[in-house]
Design a protein around this nucleic acid. Structure first.
Lengths: 334, 334
DNA sequence: GCCTGGCACTCGGTATCATCGAGTGCCAGC
DNA sequence: GCTGGCACTCGATGATACCGAGTGCCAGGC
């Protein structure tokens, strides 16, 4: 598509623009390593790169800026994912060495880690508990007609539902239902919950158990996918227009949007979504670097970095790849 | 301290500046209702208000801007908290009418409600579960040497600790410890956990139970106080300097800081903390309106609104007061 | 035929200067 | 003691000129 020289010029422009955030002129590129031609030649090539849609000029007498297509070519030809700089690799290692405690806190810390590694915003989506077997179920009476159902999943996640009963039920009945339910749904996943219960013979117990089952069954899968955003303040330095900052922050606030955003990108087989590739108008100036992570070969959650389109893709890709891999092994070991 | 005329001029300046975000000149004030003097007189008064530290001039030939002291006088003499506008009152009512489900989600939604009411950022601190009695304790074995301890509090909160055991313990031992522990700590609060356990006679059970107790006892009270931030994107429109935006977002990211910030302000008996009154340099241009809420007369958590120092205090005070009150009754009813 | 030095040209950024006007401080007079 | 009047200040706005980074293009040379 692009001959060697055009390619290296384009890559040099993107590289330079990522570093300086300033329009890049032919002079700078001519001096760049790997480009051994005069600035005049570079100018000619740049002109054709512009007509082909890889670059734009903010105004006539200015240097060039990459377009979305330009960034896309850049990341597509980035070659090997590259490795983290050694200090960063150390940071990741010591993070996972020290990681312990509740999985939620750990994932939140992971989002901050991603932010720290890349200088942008880190995002972590916790796997839906839909596909994780239930390890234990327990009912606790909170008020005469209110019962709290707590399920512990195999991954250490806790799912709870506050349930309003239609009639008052004594404590011993709640306990009976608890035992009854445990026998039925422990070991199943939320998506394969028993449709109906073996009747236990006692009316109240059936009533409670059925209500609880319904509560578990009706919770949408997305609501069990928690989202952790680390380093949201970096958004302020990522974009110069205040309203862009506001819009991007607005996206990050809507966790459901973030979940589907990451899922969509991963489903399309992308590691990087640039500008309109994210499918969101409000992220036109942004880019997202994602990686899914798996547990037992099962697609689980995903992690990502959200930054400006002119982010350092090589670095971000390395960070996201490394962290997702370490996260996998960490979660597998427990 | 300030005579009537100075007071109403100061109040008019603050009011006007809150609305326009522009330095206020003597002409505008002379036309303001309640000020029936000429602009020349206003000028004289403004000059003395400036020497007394209530106002400043950005530059010689500009209008005046309130200082922190000026805002402070304004809120101190604001009189009655005022009521919400009727549409807003409706919004609050329908919110609490529709509120149901898990307490965490409800509080998060409350933070968004506060943000929506005031156009700034809403903050909700969930009460520490330290002072809420434990309703149920349950141990679940996750791996040979890993046990998850789940405690349900009286308010529907769930506290969990993943516990690494020193030696492998069979499932029946874990269950025994679970029953044993439940008998001991159900009904107590985290701060009054039994220091030691009645020995059960079985070594393994004692070991597990003791480890669990230690885990519950060593969790600091702050870590059980969750923070919900709603409408963080509003920060972008609250301040014009990008770095201020970044700093304020940075504060909101540190949940522990937010907890102590709100607590400090409440403890000092304030409803409003302006600029340096927050005790944080990074919030020099910001103001915080807070209200604690109680359950059973017990100080529980607090809610607040974080905005620019030139926020509409009357409105924010009304919003915070109304929401905290409705929240109290909502939580009391369950 | 392709590259390159050279050159005229473009145009945003910066500096200079004048003008405008909102706002001020102050004073004399009512 | 208040107010109208007035000289003054100074940021904002706009016109003008200039600079220079960068461009497109052409003619000459390898």
């Amino acid at each position: 598509m692009l001959d060697d020289r055009k390619a290296s010029i384009l890559r040099a422009v993107v590289q330079e623009y990522i570093e300086t955030a300033q329009p890049v002129g032919s002079g700078r590129i001519a001096k760049a390593p790997g480009v051994d031609v005069s600035s005049a030649t570079v100018r000619n090539e740049m002109a054709t790169l512009e007509t082909e849609g890889y670059l734009v000029q903010p105004h006539t007498s200015a240097g060039r800026i990459p377009t979305e297509k330009g960034y896309r070519y850049f990341v597509d030809t980035i070659g090997s994912p590259g490795a983290l700089r050694s200090e960063q690799a150390k940071q990741v290692s010591s993070f996972f060495r020290a990681a312990h405690g509740e999985i939620e806190e750990m994932l939140e810390a992971t989002s901050r880690l991603l932010s720290g590694l890349t200088a942008w915003t880190g995002v972590v989506v916790q796997p839906s508990s839909t596909e994780v077997p239930i390890r234990s179920v327990h009912l606790v009476g909170l008020a005469p007609k209110v019962v709290l159902a707590v399920a512990v999943h195999g991954d250490g996640t806790v799912e709870k539902h506050t349930i309003e009963l239609e009639r008052e039920v004594g404590e011993e009945r709640v306990n009976a239902a608890s035992v009854h339910l445990a026998g039925q749904i422990v070991g199943s996943m939320r998506s394969t919950l028993p449709a109906s219960l073996r009747p236990s013979g006692v009316d109240d117990v059936d009533h409670v158990a059925a209500t609880v089952l319904r509560a578990f069954g009706s919770a949408p899968a997305e609501s069990t996918e928690e989202v952790f955003v680390g380093g949201a303040s970096r958004v302020a330095s990522a974009f110069d227009a205040v309203e862009t900052v506001q819009q991007v922050l607005g996206v990050l606030e809507q966790h459901l949007v973030v979940v589907t955003l990451l899922r969509d990108v991963v489903d399309r087989g992308l590691q990087v979504a640039i500008g309109s590739e994210t499918g969101m108008e409000t992220l036109a100036d942004a880019a997202l670097v994602v990686a899914p992570y798996t547990i037992d070969g099962q697609r689980a959650g995903s992690i990502g970095v959200l930054g400006p389109a002119r982010m350092n893709y090589r670095e971000a890709l390395a960070a996201v790849a490394t962290v997702s891999q370490r996260l996998e092994t960490h979660l597998a070991e427990g």
